[in-house]
Amino acid sequence: MNAPLSPQTAPAATGYNFAYLDEQTKRMIRRALLKAVAIPGHQVPFAARDMPMPYGWGTGGIQVTAAILGSGDVLKVIDQGADDTTNAVSIRAFFQKTANVAVTTRTAEATVIQTRHRIPEKPLKAGQTLVFQVPIPEPLRFLEPRETETRVMHALADYGLMHVKLYEDIAKHGHIAKTYAYPVEVEGRYVMDPSPIPKFDNPKLSMSPALQLFGAGREKRIYALPPFTRVKSLDFEDHPFEPTRFEAPCALCGATDSYLDEVVTDDRGTRMFVCSDTDHCEERRADGHRGLLAGDDLVDTITREADVERDDGAPIVPLP
């Protein structure tokens, strides 16, 4: 009885329902999803199940994915934009095993994309569904600790406090210092936490042709943005919302319009900036775009460094 399970004794998917969750649970989650889609930005409570992984690893997103996944779907899972990090690999393997669905790393090919903390760079299209993993669904949580009170505030659209937070940021730092999980207002009504995506991604939330679903497992909340929902990042008239901008292009693919990760490359402070969306970066490189540190022509790059031009024609700023 206590014999350790090996892959041989536990073959894929037997003993589980399709996509792990039982049908009644999926039905419950779909009801919550329908309500969430009907009231964009409104947090709908749902009876989140215990999943075979710890809270904080995407249990909310996985339950949403499990509830909407069909056998014909093509699944992509990203974690901070990357397809190859532990979280993404594990979740992808989980659904391959329990639902036997096709998986991909290509944004354009996926029908369901589960994501942690990013929206893919490639614009989404109608028919695609983006599932966000949400740690804290309540945008007012750190401003008002009482859940009873935040619910009333949402019900009455009493959001003055949210702007007090932004006011404080400007008073202290001269600008709104929030760079991720930047609060948004949905269709002029609900204030919503877009999950900890960088504010760089906020503009992509608005008027997206794709369906966007948000699942918070520990907090047991689901919310949604139906396609073509107007989403506005909160700001002041005289301090408008500004997405993050980067000084340098991606070191691998030369992209100047993507969100970059900082990678420390040695112990003397050398760093490189690369696209956080690995699929986007790979596709660009496959199309022949080259950044300053793209491995295959590194030598070439160094020799050309002085007069090399960026993709957009601007002169390159050498990395420190």
Binding site: D158, G160, L161, A171, F236, D238
Partner: peptide, 27 residues
């Protein structure tokens, strides 16, 4: 009062609650 919020934020809260959205004017 909100003890964790600056004096300006304390005074401005009501203005923002009724829809003031200009930082300069609130300040």
């Amino acid at each position: 009062l909100r003890m964790g919020v600056s004096a300006g934020g304390n005074v401005g809260e009501r203005l923002m609650a009724v829809g003031a959205r200009s930082y300069g004017a609130i300040r």
